[in-house]
């Protein structure tokens, strides 16, 4: 039963992702991306990583998607479906992406680990994650906060309307 749910989520995830890069309207594309991100959060729950899933929803769906919508609304008159949305290299790009996909699938199929099933042990829990973040990964963790601060300040500086 859970497997069936997973496959449904996986298929819809791919469908939404594909739609978000193909639909004509940019706003629709952003909506599709929202569903894509939500589905990814669902995949995380299947992987026994509920914390990552929650963060995914909080940060991506709650934060980044809002930004995207804002940006789309601020850059008016471009969401019009009549404007060409693809570059001139649509078919070469598609072919290359397809070729890489085929290659990756072949590699995955050829390897035995792809058949590995869920191990009986429980995955890392929230406590372990927290301890790791604040001990072994403390320095990168703090760097991330520094990076976010820099991005914040940088965004304000760049976005300020110069008189």
């Amino acid at each position: 039963m859970t497997e069936l749910v997973f496959y449904i989520i996986a298929v819809s995830l791919c469908a939404f992702a594909f739609l978000s890069v193909t639909v004509g309207d940019v706003f629709h594309s952003a909506v599709c991306l929202t569903f894509t991100l939500l589905s990814v959060a669902g995949v995380y729950f299947f992987l026994g990583a509920p914390f990552i899933g929650v963060i995914q929803i909080l940060v991506y769906v709650g934060g980044i998607m809002t930004l995207f919508i804002f940006a789309i609304k601020l850059t008016a008159k471009i969401g019009d479906a009549s404007i060409r949305q693809f570059t001139r290299q649509l078919w070469p790009g598609a072919a290359l992406a397809g070729a890489i996909l085929a290659l990756l699938l072949a590699v995955i199929r050829a390897n035995a680990w792809s058949l590995r099933l869920l191990p009986p042990v429980q995955g890392p829990d929230l406590k372990q994650l927290g301890v790791e973040l604040l001990t072994r990964y403390l320095l990168p963790f703090e760097f991330i906060s520094l990076l976010l601060l820099a991005a914040l300040v940088g965004a304000i500086v760049i976005g300020k309307v110069k008189k």
Partner: peptide, 22 residues
Amino acid sequence: GLVENYLLAQAGGVFVLIVVVT
């Protein structure tokens, strides 16, 4: 000067790289 051309070349490079590594 078109970023998509550069990206296409880059992705082609990745493709070749995967083939070679494999």
